[in-house]
Design a protein around this nucleic acid. Structure first.
Lengths: 159, 159
DNA sequence: GGTGAAACTTCTAATAA
DNA sequence: TTATTAGAAGTTTCACC
């Protein structure tokens, strides 16, 4: 769980793989003027150290018919029910992320749905979970995701 | 932007690639009892239709020294400033996602920081953006991410 | 649509520096 | 740590179902 040190080469490798995980190591090698073997070894090390946890596809959920995003703030009757409620939330596939939070809400989650009707059903299902006293929904009208590379560059410039 | 139809084979291919984007097509082919050429053609089609938007690495931000997550709800002075404020937020690399929302807040964003001091500075920077009247911070004590495959399976069972 | 095989590219591990 | 290299493995194309 310790903080890991990466050098400029590692950073550049991550930078290219973040954009496209299938970037051939030979391409990376060419660009960085190192050998493909070196790229291979470094990627492996970053995987072993856990810096690289895995890779995943970015799917277009709108094209899959899921264009509705909302956040639901949850108030619990008692905070000792947090774990239980979180488990229940995770059983709903449309709940993509959930956070235990300080501040206004006890739990805070993101849902992805087909449309308003579908979202209503999901929210009703959440409302029904034992221990939840009240929820507050915020519908996303527009989502703007910041480039992952941006944060990474900032992190590396600090190193 | 239309909804795209995928069959069971496409679904299975996505299923394997979601777990690891570098899963060899030959492995996928073997498992699905089709040829590697077919896998290749289908992946290409899903890329062309936009269902697959791209691929990315999952990094361990905690190992990179970024273990702090918070959500910040933003109240604007006037809603016509929304676009402007959103642009400003996107210039802060620590703001990873921002949403224009209905409900309690006008804008709603997620930040990733090193620690509480760092988060404080980021929140102060957000507070300083012209047009923002007030913010409300919710600190994440625990994040629980639902498996991407889960939502995908649900989507496909509906198809 | 899909296949299978050929041609091409990339990966990976061992060796050496 | 990095580079080189060669054999293994994967990808991609294409003629043919």
């Amino acid at each position: 769980m310790n903080k890991v040190k990466l050098d400029e080469i590692d950073h550049q490798i991550l930078d290219m793989l973040i954009d496209n995980t299938r970037t051939p190591f030979t391409d990376i090698a060419k660009k960085l003027l190192i050998s493909a073997g070196t790229v291979h070894v470094r990627v492996k090390k970053m995987e072993e150290s856990g810096i690289i946890k895995g890779s995943s596809l970015t799917l277009d959920y709108v094209k899959l018919g899921y264009s509705f995003i909302a956040y639901v703030g949850i108030f619990l009757e008692k905070t000792h029910q947090t774990k239980f409620v979180l488990e229940r939330l995770n059983q709903i596939p449309y709940v993509t992320v959930a956070h235990i939070t300080t501040g206004k809400f006890n739990i805070f989650c993101k849902i992805r749905a087909k449309d308003t009707t579908h979202a209503k059903n999901i929210i009703f299902k959440i409302d029904d979970i034992d221990g939840i006293s009240r929820t507050e929904t915020m519908i996303s009208l527009e989502e703007s995701i910041n480039d992952k590379k941006r944060l990474m560059h900032t992190i590396f410039n600090e190193m």
